[in-house]
């Protein structure tokens, strides 16, 4: 079932086994949102270090934007993506991987990924994804009107 979309009610879930990666991503998301004239700035952040805690956090928080590492210590990010999309099809999930093999890219698309970035993180990659998210959210809001 499609959940009702509300402006300024966005939540971001960061899933990565390495705490430093999550901190770096969060710091730069906040900076980019404020510096680059992006529409949606009022976010709450949630973090998970493995698949099971990510699934719990997703169910509790129902995030709008997820950065999901493909390689997690207790499972595959792609399998997790499928579960997320079952729960909330309109969620914008960005797959993050240290390896951009074609198999990973294709499997991510098949499972419903909205975007894909390859580590290391750069501001250009994050900014490109945020602009994609902005357009996605614009469409959702229009549909909900």
């Amino acid at each position: 079932m499609q959940t009702k979309i509300k402006l300024r009610d966005q939540k971001i879930l960061l899933v990565d086994d390495l705490d430093y990666n999550r901190q770096l991503l969060r710091h730069n998301l906040t900076a980019l949102f404020s510096q680059h004239n992006l529409k949606y700035k009022a976010f709450s952040y949630f973090q998970a270090h493995n698949a099971s805690s990510a699934l719990l956090s997703f169910s509790q928080q129902s995030p709008d934007l997820v950065f999901l590492d493909i390689e997690l210590p207790d499972g595959s990010g792609i399998e997790l993506l499928k579960r997320f999309k079952e729960q909330k099809p309109e969620c914008f999930v960005v797959m993050v991987s240290g390896v951009s093999t074609l198999d990973n890219v294709k499997a991510s698309i098949a499972a419903g990924a909205a975007s894909f970035i390859v580590k290391p993180f750069t501001a250009d990659k994050i900014l490109a994804v945020l602009r994609q998210f902005e357009r996605h959210y614009d469409k959702l809001l229009k549909t909900a009107e």
């Binding site: 901190q23 730069n28 900076a31 510096q35 680059h36 501001a123 250009d124 900014l127 602009r131």
Partner: peptide, 20 residues
């Protein structure tokens, strides 16, 4: 040109990562 930005790495976080 595609919009460009610079990744910010807070010094404290970088030092903690180096220790890691």
């Amino acid at each position: 040109l595609a919009p460009s930005a610079v990744l910010q790495v807070p010094l404290e976080l970088k030092n903690a990562y180096i220790q890691h």
